[in-house]
Design a protein around this nucleic acid. Sequence first.
RNA 1: GGCCCGUUCGUCUAUCGGUUAGGACACCUGGUUUUCAACCAGGUAAGAGGGGUUCGACUCCCCUACGGGCUGCCA
Length: 469
Amino acid sequence: MNAPRPVVTRFAPSPTGYLHIGGGRTALFNWLYARGRGGKFLLRIEDTDRERSTPEATAAILRGLTWLGLDWDGDVVSQFERRDRHAAVAHEMLARGTAYKCFSTQEEIAAYRAAQEAAGASYAVFQSPWRDADPATFPDAPFAIRMKAPRTGETVIDDKVQGRVVIQNATLDDMIVLRSDGTPVYMLAVVVDDHDMGVTHVIRGDDHLNNAARQQMVYDAMGWEVPTWAHIPLIHGPDGKKLSKRHGATGVEEYQAMGYPAAGMRNYLTRLGWAHGDAEIFSTAEALQMFDLEGIGRAPARLDFKKLENTCGHHMAMADDAALLHELTAYLGAAGQPALTALQVDLMAKALPVLKKSAKTFPELLDKASFLMIQRPIVPDAKAAEALDAVSRGILKSLTPQLQNASWTKEALEPVLTEAATANGIGFGKLAAPLRAAIAGRTVTPSVYDMMLVIGREETIARLTDAVA
RNA sequence: GGCCCGUUCGUCUAUCGGUUAGGACACCUGGUUUUCAACCAGGUAAGAGGGGUUCGACUCCCCUACGGGCUGCCA
């Protein structure tokens, strides 16, 4: 019995922008798969395209992953820095006879295709005249190294998500592995890096499914063990088209700035395109237990903000108070809003156990907490001002001295308020409205008891006094 | 154009030849309630279309339609 190799997965984004939400999900799947099996999750930045790669983009990707709670093992690998190794492998392929020098210029290749099209072909794979050329005929000119790919037969990708995918070798050309300027091509770099990094499972977007065939040829050419493939469908927008900027947020950091809690985001993203029976709301620890490649669907999934919000609501409610307060602070920073004052932090800590139960996002939480964020004198909005008519103000005024003596617990406050209502011949609702207006300056707030308990007796009485003055 | 992948309620999905096709979000109705929520109960809602295979197909095969991807000395 051979012990199975420990799982090694990786996330390999191009640093050409922010961390796309689809990329975030791909990273999450890789992370869940590795971490759930005691394996390693590696991070590699595919920065071989010097024109488009920026350090800012790399930083943004790292921030996005960190926010999602996806930690990687070891150092971040730069693909560009490994270019010498890639080139060495290309030359090794040359030595093995699995690749050859191609002196065809780009003009010649274009001309070849044009000629084929003129001859009626709709598309033609380029067939280099140098594939089997005698070295004696080699010109003294720059050359690219092309893989000597099989021209007949088929390449089979045994994919954990897509199943058995068969590609006819005749439809693939001899891809270039090393450019004429000596730089490696992405297709070669990925294979060399994945092999050198010991990656056992390649979990990535299905836009790479066709590429897998050519990459598998490189593995074969080098005599390396082919990793387990798992090509997952891309995420689409609500209209079913590929998710793009016109759908709204596509960057992971935008979701943070919109105030979705990371745990909810993880849960939602895990469930998007993956299922485990009826499991809907689960912790990350539970996700780690359940996640497998089997549960990944084959069809692209659409983003549904309503469900995202609902999922986040559950996580908000079950979050640990201290952790939630900490994340709220981080949210304010990410959203570019002022930090909480010491007093607000104090009040927020008291209010959180109640507020978190009904909020789905941080902005919503903050809105429900507005009664503790504001300062006297409180300026009521139009509707609140209406609730504070002369009669109501009179009732509030008579209530103040009674609050002075009541002990400040919900149990003690309840009879005080209900008795005040009956004494004035009104229902509790009629009393709560002006109270709410006086305490919060608005008509939609948490329970009046909860607000009073959070801000305390002194502040409550001060606000009531202001309102009736 | 060629090749590859996909298609179950509006959305995410379960089902792995035999089910009244299940769950969740959303939506609608009712309940609870000091407001908004939250919460509780109930309801509407699906196998893209057409051929096969089979005693029996959402499940297997073929065709069509639609969607997506790849087809580069980009990644």
